[in-house]
């Protein structure tokens, strides 16, 4: 470092700064590592779909399973898959609550429910003709409208429900 100063003759109008040069060098060196880490984190799913983001949760009786993404981005569509393995009762009343209604906008639901309404801040989907003894799956395509962490609660008929958290990046 010393020879940097020694080899730099004073030139009128040119004010060299050793500290600024070192800062620039470190910013590029460590900054590049930081950018690589961000890309690695994105590839591994820390910002949206990927290994750390894709998650499945079952309720206590394994009568309800939800596949979701832990991490999402504001205004970027997110898929929510709700499966009822070998359900044997009809009609099915699916309740999606928690902060779901306040934090996200539901773009599409497939299959379309026979009846849909909101009740006490929950989205209620009723399927009259669900076939018994088969897995029944509902896909919800939603768009997060607020950043931050929020919890969604899902339950079917009177069975034990489950809740899961998601984090939405701004």
């Amino acid at each position: 470092m010393a020879n940097v100063k020694e080899k730099s003759p004073p030139l009128p109008g040119v004010k060299q700064s050793h500290a600024a040069l070192q800062f620039e060098y470190n910013a590029r060196r460590f900054g590049f590592i930081l950018l690589l880490l961000i890309i690695t984190a994105a590839l591994s799913g820390l910002f949206s779909g990927g290994y750390f983001s894709d998650a499945t949760k079952n309720n206590a009786g394994n009568s309800l399973a939800v596949e979701y993404q832990r991490f999402g981005r504001l205004l970027s569509p997110v898929e929510l898959k709700i499966t009822l393995p070998g359900q044997n009762s009809a009609p099915l009343t699916l309740r999606i609550g928690g902060e779901y209604m306040a934090r996200t906008q539901t773009d599409n639901i497939w299959p379309q429910p026979d009846e849909m309404h909101s009740e006490g801040g929950e989205l209620v989907l009723v399927y009259q003709a669900a076939k018994t003894h088969n897995d029944f799956t509902v896909w919800l395509y939603t768009t997060p409208e607020q950043p931050g962490k929020f919890v969604t609660r899902v339950s079917v008929n009177n069975q034990p429900g489950l809740s899961f958290w998601q984090f939405i990046y701004p």
Binding site: V4, K7, S8, P9, K15, Q16, L21, Q22, E24, Y25
Partner: peptide, 20 residues
């Protein structure tokens, strides 16, 4: 950043070249 003198009388300032 600040101005950096890279060559003095035809001689490269290699340490600085590397840093910038």
């Amino acid at each position: 950043g600040s101005p950096v003198i890279l060559v003095v009388h035809g001689e490269l300032q290699n340490d600085k070249l590397k840093k910038v």
